Deep mutational scan, measured.
Amino acid sequence: KKYKIKVYVKDKKTKKWKKIKEIEVDTKEEALEAIKKLPPNYEVKIVP
């Protein structure tokens, strides 16, 4: 079972969220580790 991490950042001009990358991992633990490495201003969604 794979997890997709969708990473969004808020556009300063439009104030809208835009997706900047998608990370695919195998476990939820890996997903949480990957999220920890991202800057705090990123919004993250984990999709099972």
Rank of each mutant, 00 (worst) to 15 (best):
residue 23 I to Y: 12
residue 4 K to P: 00
residue 4 K to N: 08
residue 11 D to I: 05
residue 11 D to V: 08
residue 1 K to P: 12
residue 21 K to N: 12
residue 31 A to Y: 07
residue 23 I to K: 02
residue 24 E to L: 14
residue 3 Y to L: 06
residue 48 P to W: 06
residue 29 E to F: 10
residue 45 K to E: 07
residue 27 T to V: 02
residue 2 K to H: 14
residue 34 A to P: 00
residue 35 I to Q: 03
residue 5 I to F: 08
residue 17 W to K: 04
residue 38 L to F: 14
residue 22 E to H: 03
residue 21 K to M: 15
residue 39 P to V: 03
residue 46 I to T: 03
residue 6 K to A: 09
residue 32 L to G: 04
residue 25 V to S: 03
residue 37 K to S: 13
residue 34 A to T: 13
residue 12 K to Q: 13
residue 22 E to F: 03
residue 1 K to R: 14
residue 43 E to R: 15
residue 2 K to G: 10
residue 31 A to G: 05
residue 21 K to T: 14
residue 10 K to P: 05
residue 46 I to S: 01
residue 17 W to M: 04
residue 47 V to N: 05
residue 11 D to E: 05
residue 33 E to A: 11
residue 45 K to N: 07
residue 27 T to L: 02
residue 28 K to G: 04
residue 4 K to L: 12
residue 37 K to M: 10
residue 18 K to F: 06
residue 7 V to A: 03
residue 12 K to G: 11
residue 45 K to P: 01
residue 13 K to C: 09
residue 47 V to E: 11
residue 27 T to E: 03
residue 48 P to T: 15
residue 47 V to M: 08
residue 27 T to Q: 01
residue 25 V to G: 01
residue 28 K to Q: 14
residue 47 V to P: 02
residue 2 K to N: 12
residue 13 K to V: 14
residue 9 V to Q: 09
residue 9 V to G: 06
residue 39 P to G: 09
residue 14 T to K: 11
residue 5 I to S: 00
residue 9 V to F: 06
residue 6 K to G: 07
residue 20 I to A: 04
residue 11 D to T: 05
residue 18 K to T: 07
residue 41 N to A: 10
residue 46 I to A: 01
residue 3 Y to F: 15
residue 10 K to E: 07
residue 21 K to Q: 11
residue 16 K to Q: 07
residue 6 K to Q: 11
residue 34 A to I: 15
residue 35 I to R: 04
residue 30 E to N: 04
residue 17 W to Q: 02
residue 48 P to C: 10
residue 45 K to A: 09
residue 32 L to S: 07
residue 5 I to T: 00
residue 41 N to S: 13
residue 2 K to A: 09
residue 33 E to W: 03
residue 12 K to A: 07
residue 44 V to T: 08
residue 47 V to D: 06
residue 38 L to E: 02
residue 20 I to T: 03
residue 31 A to F: 05
residue 24 E to W: 12
residue 44 V to H: 09
residue 34 A to Y: 15
residue 47 V to F: 10
